[in-house]
Amino acid sequence: MIWKPNVTVAAVIEQNGQYLLVEETPNGVDIKLNQPAGHLEPGESILHACSREVLEETGHTFLPEALTGIYHWHAPHNDTTYLRFTFSGRITNFDPERELDTGIIRATWFSLEEIRAKQASHRSPMVMQCIEDYLTGRSYALDILTHYGLVNK
């Protein structure tokens, strides 16, 4: 068996003390809260993946401005390892008519207090950790990332 981690991207999006999260059903049953997030696709840069996932899951156009952190998590429920690149940035547009990805119930804004109160429904421990890191000012310039030979940069 060849092992490889799942490379994912996520966005911490804050406006006026509210954070954009998605309510989703990753297993088709339980409703979970997550940042707009998803998997890196072939030929895609990490930055492009983040912008694409935010658009697909929320209808918002997202411009990554800083890397908040890189997170390594082994999910015990499915024996999968995730390597997550999380970005902060800003919304530049919104399409309220856009159909959201399969499994996404809705994208909505939550206060920090609401997010903390709903930790039992977070998709992973990375949800709260990414927000906490953002709040402490963790921010790395995007030029820390280097992409070679990609179709979507």
Rank of each mutant, 00 (worst) to 15 (best):
T86G: 09
G17F: 04
Q35H: 15
T86Y: 11
D133N: 09
D95H: 14
G43L: 12
A107Y: 01
A75S: 13
L67G: 01
E41C: 10
V29K: 08
E97M: 14
G103Q: 03
L55A: 11
E56Q: 08
Y134M: 07
N27P: 01
N152V: 12
W3P: 02
D79E: 08
H147D: 05
W73L: 00
G17K: 01
Y19T: 00
R138H: 13
V127I: 06
L21F: 10
F62M: 08
D133L: 03
Q15C: 08
G103P: 11
Y19R: 09
D101V: 07
T136R: 14
T25S: 11
G38W: 12
N27F: 07
D101L: 12
G137Q: 15
R90M: 03
K153H: 15
N6S: 09
D133P: 05
L145F: 11
T81F: 01
I2A: 10
P125A: 03
N27H: 03
R84S: 15
W3V: 08
Y82K: 00
T102M: 14
L21E: 01
T80A: 05
T81G: 00
H74A: 05
G43S: 11
R84T: 12
E24F: 06
P125R: 02
T146N: 12
L100R: 04
L40D: 07
K118L: 14
P64Q: 01
S88F: 03
H39W: 15
P26F: 02
H74D: 00
R123G: 08
H39E: 12
I131T: 05
T92N: 06
I91M: 03
V12M: 09
T86M: 10
I70S: 03
G89Q: 04
V22T: 12
Y19D: 02
T92A: 12
V22E: 09
S45F: 13
P125I: 02
T61M: 10
Y148S: 12
V7P: 02
I31L: 15
N93Y: 10
R90I: 01
I13P: 02
L112A: 07
Q15P: 05
E24H: 08
W73N: 02
L63A: 07
L135A: 00
Y148F: 15
A117S: 07
L150N: 06
K32R: 15
T108L: 14
V9S: 11
Y71F: 13
A120Y: 02
P26Y: 05
L21N: 04
E44L: 02
I46Q: 11
I2V: 09
F87W: 07
V22F: 05
R84W: 10
Y134V: 07
L145Q: 07
N16F: 01
V7T: 09
I91T: 01
L145D: 03
D101N: 04
Q35K: 02
P76R: 14
V7L: 13
G38S: 04
M126I: 13
G38R: 13
I70E: 00
L142G: 04
